[in-house]
Write a protein that binds this DNA or RNA. Sequence first.
DNA 1: ACTATTAAATAGGGATCGCTATTTAAATGG
DNA 2: CCATTTAAATAGCGATCCCTATTTAATAGT
Lengths: 228, 228
Amino acid sequence: MEKPVRKRGRPRALDHDVGLEIASRLFWERGYEGTSTADLTKAMGINPPTLYSMFGSKEELYRQALEFSVSRENRRRLEILQSSRPTYEALRLYLYDIADGDTQPDRPRGCMVATAVLQHAEENASVARMTAALREASIQTLKARFDRAVDEGELPVQTDTDTLARFYGAIVQGMSAQACDGACNTRLKRLIDVALTAWPGKERPPETAVGDNAPSVQPVSIAGSHEL
Amino acid sequence: MEKPVRKRGRPRALDHDVGLEIASRLFWERGYEGTSTADLTKAMGINPPTLYSMFGSKEELYRQALEFSVSRENRRRLEILQSSRPTYEALRLYLYDIADGDTQPDRPRGCMVATAVLQHAEENASVARMTAALREASIQTLKARFDRAVDEGELPVQTDTDTLARFYGAIVQGMSAQACDGACNTRLKRLIDVALTAWPGKERPPETAVGDNAPSVQPVSIAGSHEL
DNA sequence: ACTATTAAATAGGGATCGCTATTTAAATGG
DNA sequence: CCATTTAAATAGCGATCCCTATTTAATAGT
């Protein structure tokens, strides 16, 4: 369906999306501030003016690279999250997918946006605002799914879905941070399994599978005692 | 005991610890790569050579600033965590302390180390290794406390304390990331309350609701909203 | 072949990066 | 006082930052 009509003029040497893929990878590994335009042009095999004619600026390239890379993953993850599965199961698969990272070989695990541009120089405030907005959007997506679960009777009506969404958002951020430190996806999935025990509709798994000798766990909290 | 003996030579215009405090604050807000030596010297009111004679280099200053600031907070938090309180309660207070951040006015919430130097330029790999090591040490501290809880019968013997520690480490990282995006400590504490429902020794009231004489402990306490 | 069109490479500008050789200032000891 | 000691300020270095004015190369239409 794509007509390969060659326009007049010299053809591009670098495909636009290939460039975004390369940029996305670099930005992910080194962060926005840790990636120089020289790094980018070198990795793409182009010269600076080509980068600027193709993408406008470093910041604009970052926007495009994020959109390119995130939208592709978000499509898959939204499909998982908004499926007809029970919410708990959808959430589990959603988190597992993030633990596995992109399908491509040796891509960084975790979510590209979760830990992007947190602390930053003042001059990069606008980039930080963008990534913060993307994170907030992710949380709102989770919240919407949880609200649906409440509507459909999967969760108690008094469930604080906003906090629950921010909790699992924090899990994604923690996972992604630990992935930066080298955690493998197996370890991340164990972490997810713990996080899922906080699911309000979930019965607590039998802590002693067989031969339960009932080790009388004392309910520790004296709610309200807050003094140090 | 401190002899204010003036040594020979011109006296220092800037106190060493005051410099570290200022540096720590700047590094926390802007990150290692986002803070320039010009930012630092300007904030300290000194000239570049003074910075280098006092602290050696930017990287060395970062090390010292982290050690100065973190060790102070860690002392307080270790005291909370390793107290004779039940582990669940100690953990809750530990996390609440991180949500509150430093006692000083308008300091960033969360943990300074949790989200420090995750993605980075290759030239800053050694700094990233240092912060990663500090994060791992924090997790090992949590794990040690949880192991103690197992020894003392607070947790089932088969508890995976390593994963549990990495889970609450992830909570700290997620909290700190959301603090960077502007979350207040009240919101962070609500998040903590959810995370605490993943505690293995914790009963779950809404569903299980044992009809014993047990006074139905509320794990998701509303006690998270103390001061704004 | 010649022109028009489009994109590449060459070369470098202005600013900032982390850092330092050198000089000047401020204290103490005699 | 002067000499010694210590730390400050002045001035700027080489490298790199993001970005661009200009020139050259490669295509399509006529």
